[in-house]
Amino acid sequence: MGTPNILLTRIDNRLVHGQVGMTWVNTLGANLVIVANDEVANDEVQQNLMDMVLPETAESRFFTIEKTIRIIGKAAPHQKILLVIKNPEDALKLVHGGIPIQKINVGNLHYAEGKKQLSATVSVDEADIQVFQKLHDLGVELEVQGIPNERARDLMELLKQD
């Protein structure tokens, strides 16, 4: 298995949506968007909605977490990948599965009662924090950044603040 050319791994609980999909693809120069999500892998309606907001320069694939782990290593070097996942748990599964993820862009985790808000778009609960801690311990860099022209901030540093 080769090393897949992953330009960015992004956590976004809306996955690919609106300008965000377009903006990240264009900024990164990605030509393949892999959405790793068990639910969406089997939901053509959601897949079609996501395809609509991606530029024509990028292809998309919708895989389960397990399938992503199994086949991402077969990607060709010219495939410049934006890997999109829904939550920290799935990120940890991918890392445990052997996908070489060095850095994760945490773009969007909705606020809910009892969550700690780290930025305008990212809120975490205890379970999220535990998973992020595990990812951090595995050497994965964690950055909070909604859109490319926003300054990236270290998630572990944000967690230390009150």
Rank of each mutant, 00 (worst) to 15 (best):
N108L: 05
Q19I: 02
T23K: 05
V122D: 03
A30P: 00
E150T: 05
I104Y: 06
V20F: 07
P77C: 02
K134G: 03
D90N: 12
N37I: 08
H136L: 04
V131T: 10
R14M: 10
D51C: 12
D38V: 01
D128M: 11
N26T: 14
Q102W: 11
K103Q: 14
M22P: 04
V84E: 05
Q130T: 10
H17P: 00
P77L: 06
V131H: 04
G107E: 02
A36R: 09
R153K: 09
L54M: 03
K160E: 12
V144F: 00
G29I: 07
D125M: 14
F62L: 04
I71L: 03
E44L: 13
V140Q: 06
N105P: 04
A58I: 10
Q130K: 14
I101V: 10
E150K: 03
E150A: 00
P148E: 00
K67H: 09
L94S: 02
A75T: 10
F132Y: 14
N42A: 10
D154I: 01
D137L: 10
L8W: 06
R70C: 03
V131S: 05
A36C: 09
R70E: 11
E39V: 15
E66Y: 00
I101E: 06
T57R: 07
T27V: 09
P148N: 01
T121S: 12
I129D: 00
K115W: 06
V122H: 00
G146P: 01
E89Q: 15
D43C: 14
I65H: 03
T64L: 01
D162V: 09
F132M: 06
E66W: 07
I101W: 09
Q161A: 08
N149W: 05
V16Q: 11
I129Q: 08
M22R: 13
D162N: 15
D128S: 11
G21T: 12
E150H: 13
V106D: 04
A76L: 13
N13L: 04
D43Y: 14
M1Q: 12
V35N: 10
K134N: 10
T3E: 13
N37T: 12
P148T: 01
K93R: 12
I147E: 07
V140T: 11
Q133V: 04
H110M: 08
G107K: 05
E150N: 02
D43V: 13
E141V: 15
K103S: 14
Q130F: 08
F62T: 08
G107P: 00
I147S: 08
V25R: 01
G2K: 15
V35D: 07
K160T: 08
N48Q: 15
T64E: 05
Q161T: 04
A75L: 05
M22I: 11
N105R: 01
L32C: 11
N13D: 15
V20M: 07
D12I: 04
V25G: 00
Q102Y: 10
L7Q: 13
E59Y: 13
L109P: 02
V140E: 00
K80W: 03
P55Y: 07
A112P: 02
G29E: 01
R153L: 06
